[in-house]
Simulated assay, not measured.
Amino acid sequence: MNDFLVIGGGIAGTSAAARLAQLGKTLLLEREPALGYHASGRSAALFEANYGLDSTVALSKASADFHTNAHGGFLSPRGLMLVGKSEDAAAFEAACIDLNMDPIPLARAFDMVPILNPDVIGFAAYHDEAYDVDTDREIQVFASIVRDNGGAVITGQDVTAIRRTQSGWSVTSNGTDHEARTLVNAAGAWVDVIARMAGIKPLGFTPLRRSMARLPAPGGHDVSKWPMIIGAHEDWYAKPDAGKFLVSPADEDLQDPYDAWADDMVLAEGLARYEEYVTEPVTRLEGSWAGLRTFAPDRNLVIGPASDDPAFLWFAGQGGYGFQTAPAASQLLADIVSGAPSELDETTRAALDPHRFA
């Protein structure tokens, strides 16, 4: 008998399992052949603690020390630049406030990112407090913590049935029944599917597609030191990646849970918006992909026991903030289970509590 059975092997499931494995015997089941296959494996991999709703910002700030120092740290410098056209003054100012960024002289922006178009760019802001995240290593570290504490992480497991028992739960995957006292739903875009399978009322999560294009380095530049760049209207962003350049149309198209792929028209429209700000046209794509960012109805994460069964734990709705919130979010889940006091304030905890949907 396991104490905890976690469904989902992305950053949500692996971080939750790592925390819970220190409280009891833990089993993690992942449907795909590898961990971090879906949204976690298609992340922009940026830690920017000022981005998101208040509860998300609180989780991100509480996660900063772990990202920076635990297990040798998972962050490397990147920086974030915000750019706007001359007519974007209001949107630019609002975005600066949201992201806690200060305007910089345009000459500095053009020096940092030489492909920015001086005939178009009217505003720029920048701050250093944005970092690349070593996402794969973080997932693997969390998985190793599970194993080091006597738990198991099993991939390639298709959950086909979930049954409530007198002692907890029986979960069937690949024809084998796994028993656990507590079930943790960290299944990403499939969290409502898992809830229905377990007889728990779904909360109305919405998976939204986010697409990405990989381009050659624009103009043959060395992009390694460039910051991530975001438009003032947040309708595109770009980021260096292993000598290439990633550009996203920042799309949010409602989808059923599935193995997402990029829509060519959506990519083309997003790349056209990006091209308005730069001097180097997009001439070739080296690849494209998409992931599903899954949100609760109010866009706050959902962490804690279901209102209809306290032995069913929600750990869901990470949206695009899974990596940057994972250390603190998973610690909150463990604190709820163990009854330990949380470092998060009461307002934040209430915003994350599943009972807000009861």
Rank of each mutant, 00 (worst) to 15 (best):
G72V: 07
V171Q: 04
M81D: 00
A316Y: 04
E275I: 03
M1N: 13
L215F: 03
W289D: 12
E252N: 12
S144M: 11
I145F: 04
K85A: 10
T135Q: 01
M112G: 03
S76F: 05
L301F: 15
A91F: 07
Q157N: 10
L292D: 02
R163P: 02
W261P: 04
F357Y: 15
A95N: 08
D298G: 13
A260H: 04
P216K: 02
L285M: 07
H127P: 05
P310A: 12
Q318R: 08
D102V: 13
F295I: 14
N149R: 11
P305M: 09
L313R: 07
H221N: 11
S63N: 07
M1Q: 14
I97M: 11
P118E: 10
K201M: 13
W190A: 05
L352C: 09
A328L: 09
I336Y: 03
S63V: 08
E93V: 11
I230P: 00
R137G: 06
P354E: 02
E138H: 13
R349H: 06
M265F: 14
S43A: 15
P257V: 05
W289Y: 13
G339M: 03
D222L: 02
T279E: 07
E32P: 04
L35E: 00
P281C: 05
S76G: 11
E129A: 14
H221M: 08
G287D: 05
L285D: 02
V302S: 05
G304L: 05
P249G: 02
V120Q: 04
D98I: 10
A350K: 15
V113G: 01
L75K: 10
V266D: 08
A125C: 09
P297S: 12
D345A: 08
E87W: 11
A186D: 06
M212V: 15
L106D: 06
Y51T: 11
G188S: 10
L352A: 10
L99Y: 14
F110D: 01
L183E: 01
V184T: 02
W261R: 15
A44P: 06
F123V: 00
P341D: 05
D158W: 12
G204N: 09
A306T: 08
T160Q: 12
V120D: 01
T172L: 14
Q157P: 06
Q140P: 08
R78H: 08
L183I: 06
L82Q: 03
G52R: 09
H38F: 12
Q324W: 08
H178M: 09
P77M: 10
G231Q: 02
R181Q: 15
L82V: 08
T135M: 06
L215A: 00
S144T: 12
G151P: 09
P218R: 00
E286P: 00
A180C: 11
S224D: 06
G243M: 01
M101Y: 01
I200A: 06
F205M: 15
S76Q: 11
E93N: 12
F245C: 00
K25E: 14
R209L: 13
G13W: 04
T182E: 07
E234I: 06
L23F: 07
D158Q: 14
I7W: 01
A316T: 09
R108W: 11
